[in-house]
Design a protein around this nucleic acid. Structure first.
Lengths: 141, 141
DNA sequence: TACTAAATCGGAATGATTATGATCTCGCGT
DNA sequence: ACGCGAGATCATAATCATTCCGATTTAGTA
């Protein structure tokens, strides 16, 4: 996606367009490995030497609030984000930390949002499977 | 639940029966507010003065591995556990951190385990709604 | 082009969790 | 009942992802 298209995406959600934001949004959407803040920083620091890790944290936080990226549960104590456009579920291996994308079964979606009680305004839904992947299978417990 | 019943539960999953473990299992199952490790420690330290916070962490970890309690996503950077026997979904207010129990709609359960690809062995499933609760509603963003 | 609020930077501070190593104790076998 | 050994507990220190801070820079507007 070109820089001007990325800039337009930022404007569309009311965020100022800056160099770091374009670079980070691009990196998050390009990286389908559910990167951590540190992952993104390491991926960008070569081409953006002045980038600060604290900017990555702040920018990701702004993106999550704006709905540009989704936040996963922490894995191994690290925040992980998902910048893909089509929501899907995740399976997280509790042995090695690998994250697998799981296509949600549309007929078996989680409780539909309108059925939630009271005045809860829903920002996002996460469906996560704690698993042991085939790599780690030999000693599951 | 009596101490001997709690002890039996521990034995059933292959865990040694100790004073701290009985106290922590009791506290987790009694406390329906999805407590953090610190919450449990504070709840028990008066009656168990020698209890160590690190024991609470280690014991909770053992309980999660044994399937006695479930782990939720971190809220405000803290681990939260759920010791109730009947699994249910959760709505987490991202403004104030409150956690609400959501009764899952049985007709709309998440992807059934047998449909997961490959050799993934499923330990647990989490369905979590990020919400803004009615208390925090006025300024949702 | 000047102004202002917001964004960025770098480093220090925070704080939940984990690691460590020295006791203690449960559960088993004698 | 007693002793043994593996595992549990304790107290403290270390870790490290994340947040906070004040100073500086910059985007967007008039």
């Amino acid at each position: 996606m070109s820089a001007s298209e990325l800039a337009e995406r930022l404007r569309a959600v009311g965020l100022k367009v800056t160099g770091p934001r374009i670079a980070i949004l691009d990196a998050v959407e390009r990286n389908s490995n559910h990167p951590s803040a540190e992952d993104i920083y390491q991926e960008l620091v070569d081409t953006h030497p002045s980038l600060s890790l604290s900017t990555v944290y702040g920018t990701l936080s702004a993106f999550v609030k704006a709905g540009l990226v989704r936040k996963l549960s922490e894995v191994d104590g690290r925040l992980r984000v998902d910048g893909t456009k089509t929501p899907h579920d995740h399976a997280i291996c509790r042995m090695c930390g690998a994250i697998f994308d799981i296509e949600p079964n549309p007929k078996k979606a989680p409780t539909s949002l309108s059925e939630l009680p009271d005045g809860l305004a829903v920002l996002d839904v996460r469906v996560e499977y704690d698993v042991v992947c085939s790599e780690c299978k030999p000693t599951p417990f």
